[in-house]
């Protein structure tokens, strides 16, 4: 009787016994009643082949409830539903609008740490299946975000070139600079292009413009490289590059979420 040690089984057994006893009692009562009782009451006028029927008034409470539901039903069909129509989509839209408003006012001026924490959440859900939980790109399956966005990332780009962001200028060729020159330019670009411009940047200026801003959208604005703005640009564009395809997140994340996830992934390569 091991199974009886489980209290759910005990309860079920008790319930079954109660139902059995009640059934026997109630059925017995009616059988006895049928044997001994004479029926009384007023017969309805009609009978069918000699079989009659007592007039059996509906219990008042039941009848009023029944009538009430019929009236409510008609109201609901004719006025309630079409006029004051509930719809799941409507509820969804309200919920989203409300949430967006709350979200935007609450996090409009979020500080760095808050953005990073929010970004980590977004990252783990949306990005980690491709970039890996640690952001390392899982053996070259996607961009290594522990490098991308830093001076080493620019160096890598100079070495290998870049394609697939969909700029009118097209592809950036590989190996435009090498050695110290490449390093100097990489530091300069990753540093937000502040301070004195190295002479070697002239190689880059042909496409990215002397100020690095991309000549009005012909090439990416690399003066923002290493900032969430640049990540935001990547998320909007998507990228079909040498490693594989990065999907576009246009419309899938809110601007605040994009900024947050940008802040988070850049913290990986900036060593914060």
């Amino acid at each position: 009787m091991n199974w009886l040690s489980d209290n759910v089984n005990q309860l079920a057994l008790l319930g079954a016994a109660v139902i059995l006893i009640l059934t026997i009692y109630v059925a017995g009562k009616y059988i006895r009643q049928m044997k001994t009782e004479k029926s009384t009451g007023v017969l309805a006028e009609e009978n069918w082949d000699g079989i009659g029927e007592y007039k059996n008034e509906l219990p008042a409470g039941w009848a009023y409830t029944f009538l009430g539901t019929i009236i409510w039903g008609m109201w609901y069909m004719i006025a309630g539903y079409p006029v004051d129509g509930y719809s799941q989509i409507g509820e969804y839209n309200d919920e989203v609008a409300q949430h967006t408003k709350m979200f935007e006012s609450k996090w409009a001026n979020a500080d760095h740490e808050t953005l990073k924490a929010m970004g980590e959440g977004v990252y783990l859900v949306q990005c980690s299946p491709c970039h890996g939980i640690a952001g390392d790109g899982m053996d070259g399956k996607a961009a290594d975000l522990t490098v991308w966005g830093s001076a080493d990332g620019v160096l890598e780009t100079i070495k290998k070139g870049s394609k697939g962001l969909g700029f009118p200028m097209g592809e950036m060729p590989a190996g435009l600079l090498s050695g110290d020159a490449a390093k100097k330019v990489a530091e300069y670009v990753a540093g937000g292009m502040k301070g004195e411009q190295p002479a070697e940047f002239a190689t880059c200026a042909g496409c990215h413009g002397p100020d690095g801003k991309g000549m009005g959208g012909m090439a990416p604005d690399i003066s923002t490289y290493g900032s969430p703005d640049f990540v935001q640009m990547v998320l909007d564009h998507g990228k079909k590059g040498f490693i594989g395809t990065m999907v576009s997140f246009k419309g899938r994340l809110t601007p605040i979420q994009e900024k947050a996830v940008g802040t988070y992934i850049l913290s990986l390569s900036h060593g914060e």
Binding site: Q126, P129, M138, G244, T245, M246, R252
Partner: peptide
């Protein structure tokens, strides 16, 4: 189709734990 790509599916269908531990 909007957020996964051919190369990702290739890795994932071959060995799901290689991309999603």
């Amino acid at each position: 189709g909007e957020y996964r790509t051919t190369d990702w599916h290739e890795n994932h269908m071959w060995e799901p734990t290689s991309v999603v531990p």
